[in-house]
Amino acid sequence: MQRRGRGRIAYPYTVWMAIFIVIPLFLILFYSFTEGDIHNIKDLKFSLNSYKKVLEPIYLKVIGNSFVLASISTLICLIIGYPVAMIIANTDVKYRNLLLMLFIVPIWMNFLLRTYAWMSLLSPNGLVNRFLLWVGLPKLEIMPGKGAVLLGMVYNFLPFMILPIYTVLSKIDKHVIEAANDLGGNSVITFMRVILPLSIPGIVSGITMVFLPAVSTFVISGLLGGGKTPLIGDLIEQQFLSSRNWHFGSSLSIILMVMILISMAVMSRIDNSPEEEGRKI
């Protein structure tokens, strides 16, 4: 009785899920496989044309760009985030939360606002360049361009890499590290064979949490890339808002979703086999 009673509490959520997640998903799927006037249901007919359009070189390049930029920014986040997480995890408890706050506080600010801030910093006549000019150094010309987009991605998503890695690292039993030292492992061996393998779950969730928003972002490339390197997110936005080609936009979304699902499946495989990883290193 009680179980059934409790189950009922979940009904509103089920309804919510159906209305705002499942139905839109099917709509997107429906639009992606049809063509015609979206406002006139009778006019729609089955078609694979929008998927064929995705295969055109110009769009493949956009998808490729998205994945390359997202991968690079994920890698940079990992390279910066791991040592930072390690430093925070090894900091005295008294200062640890303060340090952690420094990396989290930017998330509290609006995402757009932060990106606009970078815009005004990096623009050809922005603060950075005025400073360089004043010092007598050559101008920095990364904005608009891929460099600025990368910087924006790394800046925005870095905390999502640091947090999960920090959580895993801070949970590693100090005695396990001492045991590795005790058994003859210097700090490099201890890191490679004990700390790193034990922190793989953190790395995996960090990569997932950075890669997913990075591959589908559209604001950062729009603002910092100046439209020179459109990403798949920009393309989708464009199809829905300006080009009004919902069919093409839908098939792009579906393709992006499938790719994300595949990469998540790959990541979860790595996450589930840390033992093998650790043994081989």
């Binding site: 005695h175 005790d182 034990l198």
Partner: peptide, 18 residues
């Protein structure tokens, strides 16, 4: 520690769970 000819059995064993 890693150069000492001494080994330790820790209180909670501290085994390598991976």
């Amino acid at each position: 520690a890693y150069k000492r000819n001494v080994n330790t059995v820790f209180q909670r064993y501290a085994l390598f769970t991976h």
